[in-house]
Design a protein around this nucleic acid. Sequence first.
DNA 1: CTTAGTGCAAAACCTTTGCAACTCT
DNA 2: AGAGTTGCAAAGGTTTTGCACTAAG
Lengths: 152, 152
Amino acid sequence: MLIMTIDLTNLRQKFREREYKLTPQRQIILQVFLDNRDKHLSAEDVHNIVRQQSNDIGLATVYRTLELLSDLDVLQKMDFGDGRSRYEINETSTPHHHHHLICLSCGEVREFEDDLLEELENVIAKKSNFTIVDHQVKFYGYCQECRKQRED
Amino acid sequence: MLIMTIDLTNLRQKFREREYKLTPQRQIILQVFLDNRDKHLSAEDVHNIVRQQSNDIGLATVYRTLELLSDLDVLQKMDFGDGRSRYEINETSTPHHHHHLICLSCGEVREFEDDLLEELENVIAKKSNFTIVDHQVKFYGYCQECRKQRED
DNA sequence: CTTAGTGCAAAACCTTTGCAACTCT
DNA sequence: AGAGTTGCAAAGGTTTTGCACTAAG
């Protein structure tokens, strides 16, 4: 499997192809995701991080950039049921490589690397006449720590 | 596997246990889901259906009831990325039996019956030290009809 | 009766949009 | 220079909340 890491050079190329402009705002926002690879950031999270770095960017621009980067498959938009969209960087060129484990007690969202779903995808595509290009899987349960607390 | 269909008798019992009141509004809203087992209704959908039956219920009450029924596991709350929560009835006592196929072109959401994920769940639970109690799977792709249109 | 539930309108949120000013290429 | 981008404030859409009134148990 070809692993393709997204970086600035890479992005510059993607932007040139589509005649988008690589503004400082867009670079800064991408950098936030590069610096927070394991997090699932909301628009507001991104806005706050940028402000902490004394690089203020309008919230509307954050939203517009998140949408743009999602369209370019640089980011992946997701929903964990907390009333806002969250985004994370799409590390590789082939989609769907990790799932999310969501703790029903503390709300922690952990990632889990795995691709045992390829086979399932094929079965479903065949049976249902759907051409599947991606999937999102969320597992709900209880993390180790919450389990310990419950035992007390 | 024990199949448990949700009906009014059933709900009455659940409500008694928790000392909730079984109001006409709540009964009507449950009935909407019983009459639309294959749909994924939003709060507004439910509100409209109820109004069509000349049984007006305040939208706030619809929201409060949807939350209540979700807490009771009578409904399952889900998100298909269209900016509103959608709900469907939880047919059986054991969770997770169908997945959703979401067409990226027309937005259609279709259900797919399957439980090949049990095994995957066990693998992940073991590796990650998470006690998994449920999962949600969404497959993104293109339905047969949109595929045909693309070929034209 | 008593406590929970309802309806309404207002508020709270998150997200999108219109527009004038600005800036990459 | 010119098309795309930004920032701001306003608007949009969904969901939640305060409160007086009502009704289920």
